[in-house]
Structure formats: C-alpha cells, structure tokens
C-alpha cells in the first residue's frame, strides 16, 4: 500500500519515533509521565532531540510542568516555532514543546471547543509546528478515547510505522477499568503498545517511613500479565516530584541543596537539572533505557505486520 504524502507526513519526516502517552482515566499522571519521559529521553544521550506535543486542548498541563507557563509561540516562515525548555542552557536547544497553553491569552481562559475545532487544531499542531530533526516526539493526550485520539491516529496514519503507545494507570480498579478501555482502543487502531506504567503506586510517609497504598497496589502488573502487555514499572508517589512539576516556577526548593550555580531566572532549565535529582528520575531512566531498546523492534513488527 503506497503511503500517501500529506502535510503531516512531510512535516514529521524528520521525526524518528513518536510515542503516544495515553490512559483511559484522567489524573493518573499522563502529563507527568510525558514530561518525565521527555526529560529522561533528553538526558539519555547528550544529543538526543526530544519534542513534547500536548494535545490535551481543554486542559493543557505540560507548560506548567516544564516551567514554561506564560511563554508564547512565534510564527516563522516555516511554521510555528515550538517553545524550547532548555533554550537558556548552553549548547543547542533540544527539548521542544508545543501546547495549546502557549496560545491562550490568559491562563484562566477556557477552550470550549467541540470535536471539529479540536480536530483542526490537532492537524495544525502536527503539520505546522517546526520541530526540525527529532529523535523522539512524546505526545501527551487527554483522558478518554474520543475526538482527540481519533484525530491523532487519523492524521498520523501516514507515519503509522513510527508510532507506539505507553499506557499509564493507577492501581485502583476504577482506573484499571479505563486503562483496559484504552488498551482496547490501541488494539482497534493497531497501535503497538510499548507497555504499561503503574503510577501513584504507594506513598512513603515522610514521618515514619511506612508505605501506604493510597490508591491500592499491584493492579497494573496483574493487568499487564493478563493482557500480555509488557509491564514497564511502577512509580510510587513522589512528593518531591509533585512539587517540582507543579511549582516549576519557584526555585526556592532547588536552591536549598546548595546547587545554586545556575541563574535562578532560568527556571525551566532548572527543571531539567532538578528532575535528575528526584528518586523518580532513577526509576524512569531505567524505564526509558528499556524503551529505547524495544522501540525499534516494536515499530519494526508493526511495519511487517501491516505490510
């Protein structure tokens, strides 16, 4: 089958791997996992070029998490210029970010759109953003299996062989139920699944060190085994990370550990540095190493099966 050339496929020609982060349920940590994946992929090699695309149009969280709140997008003759999270670091910027949050005049503005408008916006994000050469494009999605997801898959059809998905869930039955729906969705659209991440799996009391399973535990592993999907790992609740991603603007916490050599105004660059010090970063970098190894084989399998 000859793959048709579209504006999207032309634009994404220079993107090697596209990883879609999804989950049926909201608030399980898609955006936080997307942000962490991007940060870890960025740190995985000194010249890895990473892009983050936030297609959660009515609730964009990526700008806040990467400390990019308030930035705007610039138009160039070659399309929209993404916001670079490491623009102020030394060397060439290689963590690009695009979200509807950058297009809003005020951060409290709501985007009240029905499906067709969302579809048009996603098409524009995929075809008009000047990503340049990218090794990885991490796509953060809204909860559910609806317009955004269908549009995304539809527009990415010409580059289907480079697509893969990571499913995020929390351990409760209610979330697993929705994760299952999400898995059914990936099967229906023949999207290869890299694996399942169980987020918010246990919380260590800072006072006595007891582990509480705030949202129960172990459900993700069981589901992965039952469904024959690789289990990538479980991430406990890390308050340090919650605070880091939530208050990416304030540098007071990072300054406490004496590593205050970077300019305190370089807040987004600070996120990159400080993230590597959290305990979640170690867990996630192991997951990412694993992902980098499996990516080509998963994508290759999807090529041969569709051929």
């Amino acid at each position: 089958m000859a793959v048709q050339e579209t504006p999207v496929s032309r634009r994404l020609k220079s993107v090697k791997h596209i990883i879609i982060v999804c989950s049926g349920k909201g608030g399980v940590g898609k955006s936080s996992v997307s942000a962490q994946l991007a940060l870890s992929l960025h740190a995985s090699s000194p010249n890895a070029r990473v892009g983050v695309l936030d297609v959660d149009l009515t609730g964009p969280s990526i700008p806040r998490m990467l400390g990019l709140d308030g930035h705007g997008v610039h138009q160039s003759s070659d399309g929209w210029v993404p916001v670079y999270a490491d623009a102020l670091g030394d060397g060439e910027p290689r963590l690009a970010c695009m979200s509807v949050g950058f297009l809003l005049k005020k951060k409290g503005d709501s985007v009240v759109w029905r499906g067709p408008k969302k579809n048009a916006m996603i098409r524009q994000f995929l075809s008009d953003v000047r990503w340049g050469e990218l090794d990885y494009l991490v796509v953060d999605t809204p909860p559910g299996t609806s317009d955004e997801h269908l549009s995304l898959i539809e527009h990415l059809a010409p580059v289907h062989s480079r697509l893969s998905a990571v499913i995020v869930t929390t351990p409760q039955a209610v979330a697993l139920l929705d994760a299952m729906k999400c898995l059914s969705f990936t099967r229906a659209v023949a999207l290869p699944v890299l694996g399942l991440i169980e987020n918010m799996s246990g919380y260590v009391c800072p006072c006595c060190g007891d582990v509480s399973n705030v949202f129960s535990t172990g459900g993700g592993v069981e589901m992965a085994i039952r469904e024959g999907v690789p289990f990538l790992g479980s991430m406990p609740i890390d308050t340090e990370l919650v605070t880091l991603l939530d208050a990416a603007e304030s540098t007071d916490l990072g300054a406490a550990d004496g590593q205050h050599d970077e300019d305190s105004e370089v807040r987004s660059f600070g996120v990159l540095q400080r993230y590597q010090k959290t305990s979640s970063a170690k867990l996630l970098s192991a997951i990412v190493e694993n992902l980098i190894l499996t990516l080509p084989s998963v994508e290759h399998a999807s090529v041969s099966s569709s051929a």
Binding site: C205, C208, D210, S212, D246, A247
Partner: peptide
C-alpha cells in the same frame, strides 16, 4: 492532606504550592 495510618501524622501529598 494525607493522614498516615501508621503514625497519624498528616503530610501533603499534593502540596498546595500556590
């Protein structure tokens, strides 16, 4: 806020940073 069932101390899992 979260009250640890072990030691009954309250800690903030999702800290109200703003």
């Amino acid at each position: 806020g979260f009250v640890c069932p072990g030691c009954k101390t309250e800690s903030q899992i999702f800290r109200p940073t703003t």
